[in-house]
């Protein structure tokens, strides 16, 4: 009962993570919906007293991985994902779209770690548990994600500058 309440309260956070993870709003909400349905079915497997948020994000992670796998069997997760469709729903600021686009271009596994750390502000241990990977892997993915994101943003900044100069 208490878990059900807390699960409901976590929905906005699932949505935030999903939006950043998959890019556009409709796909993100599809992911949240599938996650919730799975979570409700599996709630009896959740062990009381353990971290419900980590459990729920694990469910979402698994649902997402399965979706991506079945949607694009030809495109392994480790490769750089092609740019995701952007809707520009967040406004017209060029920087904002650049950031969205750059995040979409991170390898999915790195993106997940970066988002759980920065958006969810999970501890590195929680991220490791949520994604089922060793903490060393969390740290190396985090480091690579940030460096890649920085480079992408710098590159875009440079490109934008060039355009202005021209």
């Amino acid at each position: 009962m208490n878990e059900a309440q807390r699960l409901i309260e976590l929905i906005p956070r699932l949505r935030r993570y999903a939006r950043a993870l998959v890019g556009d709003r409709a796909s993100a909400d599809d992911l949240v919906q599938d996650t919730l349905e799975r979570a409700w079915m599996k709630l009896h497997l959740y062990r009381r007293g353990t971290d419900l948020r980590a459990w729920l994000f694990t469910v979402m992670h698994n649902v997402h991985v399965n979706k991506v796998r079945s949607a694009r069997a030809t495109d392994p997760l480790e490769d750089e994902m092609p740019e995701l469709a952007q809707r520009g729903a967040q406004g017209d600021a060029l920087m904002v779209r650049d950031l969205e686009r750059s995040i979409a271009r991170l390898p999915a596994e790195q993106r997940a770690v970066l988002l759980l750390v920065t958006l969810e502000e999970m501890s590195y241990e929680q991220v490791a548990r949520t994604l089922g990977i060793p903490i060393g892997t969390v740290m190396s993915r985090l480091s690579r994600a940030r460096e890649k994101l920085r480079a992408l943003m710098l590159g875009q900044g440079a490109a934008a500058k060039l355009k202005v100069v021209k």
């Binding site: 906005p12 956070r13 949505r15 935030r16 904002v96 969205e100 970066l114």
Partner: peptide, 20 residues
């Protein structure tokens, strides 16, 4: 990143999701 995505937290939930 937080500036970009935190607003999602206070968005209205679509009915489909509320029904999930």
């Amino acid at each position: 990143l937080r500036g970009l995505y935190d607003p999602v937290l206070s968005e209205a939930l679509p009915p489909a999701l509320a029904g999930a």
